[in-house]
Amino acid sequence: MEALATAVARLLIRGGWLVGLVVLETLLLTGFWLAGPTPFGDAFDRRAAEADLLLLTLTSLPTLFAGALLSSGDREDGMGDFYRSCRISPTTQVMGTLIGQLSVMGMALVVALVFSLALVTPSVLLTSSFATSLGLALLSTAVHGAWGLAMGSWLRSRWSAVAGALIFWLLTVFALEALITALLGVLPARWTFPVLGTFLVADPSQFVRVSSVFFRGQGWAYGPAFAPVREFLATPPGWALFSFAAAIHLVVPTGLSILGWKRRSR
């Protein structure tokens, strides 16, 4: 697995992903910090919420694309078949690819985030708010990378995998949110908590984004029904539950990827 992860990381670096992402993310983030008053202050404000949104939008699309391209590329190029002939199991292949991908995408994110903040307001690098955002952005990278791999292992070609990744991104980042918001307007009030709660936990993009809000002790906009959730998340069992849910968001797409490759070997 280690050899494969190293090889995947090397391929992404040589393919220009690392440099491209660092430049893109640094430019966007620096511009964002320069436009706003105090990014990542200890208090959670509108700008911090926007920063989270920007980070999650930034991290999710490239990682979805990279995962989809890596996995569908292995399929189209015949590398997946070659792994099997070398007795590399689908599990090792998927885990190695995911780790290699995350190491590069995560590195790009950390470099861009630290560099852009160091340019504008270096003091915020030491705040807990920054640590929360960075941690959740890395989680978003992992979750979306895993979904990208899952799509690449099931769809027929690179093009269909990229198209699938784009549709997934539009759906989870924008379309589902609009749909749920519209739905809540017509549903009875007692349905608000179960519908919104299910959506916020099940949608990987929203799960990471909303966790970021709740971890900062905020989220009044979701209504009083979510106050206990916010308080619960601040406790050790709440952390355990969050970690479990985060693990599910990683395990489901990873499992689907492995299943996709196993299906091909049958």
Partner: peptide, 23 residues
Amino acid sequence: PDRLAFSRGWTAADWLAMVAAWK
């Protein structure tokens, strides 16, 4: 295998080193 396409980033030495690690 009869067919294996290589991404642009692969060098012969890197690819063989990976296979050597597996084997």
